[in-house]
Amino acid sequence: MICQECHERPAALHFTKIVNGEKTEVYFCEKCAHEKGEYLFGGHPAFSLNNLLSGLFSSEPLFSSNAASHGEDEHCEKCHMTFQKFLQTGKFGCAHCYTAFDSKLTPILKRLHGGNTRHQGKIPKRMGGALHLQKELHLLREQLNEMIANEHFEKAADVRDQIREVEHKLSGEGGGA
């Protein structure tokens, strides 16, 4: 086997590259492998992360046995991705996959995101009219509880008014959406 980069020296190292579940074998001599190291493995997680993911999922006996017993019939009706295929590649086929595999996803998300399963960040403005209000409501209620706990009753009354206002807006939004 000759190095695929310089076509001169004998290949000393061989790498398996996995992109979108497709495996490619590449062969390099030591010198070229070093030169190419950054290009292939730096910058993008596709190479290391996929392996890590498959390892992460399949090391969980719960998933593999579950998936095996259900066979191929468990799939996303929109893109036809199967859960088995997802475990192999670590990637979903479409947004609906998140709904289709929801119950199996929670433990995976917990492992990947330090126990978290719910989004706490940005909400798109376009779709988020009601969502933004709900988030505001949630924050106000937290404030209210804190104020009552600290016996700041006057401020608490103000916050209660604000909560009513948001609730009112929200009922309007809900009717519209």
């Binding site: 997680p45 947004a95 990947l112 719910r118 989004h119 798109p124 403005k125 376009r126 969502l131």
Partner: peptide, 25 residues
């Protein structure tokens, strides 16, 4: 971009991505 594009977004999981390592934000 969001002014003219409807993003894949879910209230519970946030911005939906191909790989669940990126989901949420």
């Amino acid at each position: 971009i969001e002014e003219s594009v409807q993003y894949a977004f879910d209230e519970k999981r946030g911005y939906l991505t191909a790989c669940p390592t990126n989901v949420g934000t």
